[in-house]
Nucleic acid binder design. Structure first.
Length: 272
DNA sequence: ATGGCCGCCCTAGGCGGA
């Protein structure tokens, strides 16, 4: 029963933080690493750094300056050709089949400041993106509910009360508004996804994966949100929860590295 | 609740992040 590890990290510029990716890969090696906000074109991706870090197989979906996702793998990748989910043609999804499991890496739009789709097109785009994800996975479930799938990435929504530092104060803040958390619940229902973090940690335990750059001391103020997620379909539920609390680790110490990303990596260990 | 800081880009102030 070998372990299979998948990590997700919003790296906030992979060129700037290629050394951090290497450091992370060395100390917490994963079979599959899903990166978001690589912020570069395909040809600018630091392939050598990733290959040297133990990931010979790369799937890069980049664009100039913004967004962009990548999947780095120790095992061969079969790239999936599926719906880009994004009506604005932005690079926000990469899907691949690795070792018989599908991996879907998402960078869901942040949504801007104003949580009203009528006046804020960014927020409308976020909700639209979420609906497209939901429709896609509902269709996939109808085709075969036993498909082993891992989806995750920076979903830019903190769904539960204890996924934010203050539920009350964030109810009108984009990332934790009811229309977003309800939309996320529908996405979860679309394939009966298991939110592994909440499956292995009690619901009253605070869990964050992102802390703003704007706090002088992120650890002291600890005003975080859980925006980064790893979910599995029911076919992988037992494998994904077999290690209990150790199955899902938020590597928050990486938030303290020199020139850090504002997101910590999250890592799932499955007992296949 | 606000503002704080980042990284990007036709390199410098504006944009987007969340």
């Amino acid at each position: 029963m070998p372990d299979f590890k998948v990590a997700s990290w919003n790296i906030n510029s992979v060129r700037l933080r290629a050394p951090s990716v290497q450091k992370y890969a060395a100390e917490s090696p994963a079979d599959v690493l899903m990166l978001q906000e690589i912020k570069c074109r395909n040809g600018e991706f630091p392939e050598k750094a990733l290959k040297d870090a133990g990931f010979p197989h790369l799937m890069v979906r980049g664009q100039k300056g913004w967004h962009g996702v990548a999947i780095a793998s120790k095992h061969p990748i079969e790239e999936l050709d599926c719906d880009p989910f994004c009506r604005n043609d932005e690079a926000r999804h990469a899907g691949a089949r690795i070792n018989g499991i599908e991996f879907h890496n998402f960078y869901v739009p942040a949504g801007g400041d104003e949580p009203d789709p009528e006046i804020n097109p960014r927020f409308a785009h976020k909700l639209d993106f979420l609906e497209r994800m939901t429709a896609y996975f509902a269709k996939r479930k109808a085709e075969n509910p036993d498909t082993p799938i891992v989806i995750g990435g920076d979903l830019n929504i903190a769904p539960h009360e204890n996924d934010v530092w203050s539920h009350k104060q964030l109810l009108k803040v984009v990332s934790h508004t009811p229309v977003e958390t309800e939309g996320m619940a529908k996405l979860q229902d679309s394939f009966d996804f298991i939110d592994v973090a909440r499956a292995v940690y009690p619901e009253d335990e605070k869990l964050y994966s992102w802390w703003s750059y704007r706090n002088r001391d992120w650890k002291k103020s600890n005003r975080g949100r859980r925006l980064d997620h790893l979910w599995v379909t029911p076919a992988l539920k037992d494998a994904a929860t077999a290690h209990g609390r150790d199955a899902l680790v938020i590597h928050r110490h990486a938030r303290d590295w020199e020139k850090p990303s504002d997101h910590a990596p999250v890592q799932l260990t499955m007992k296949l």
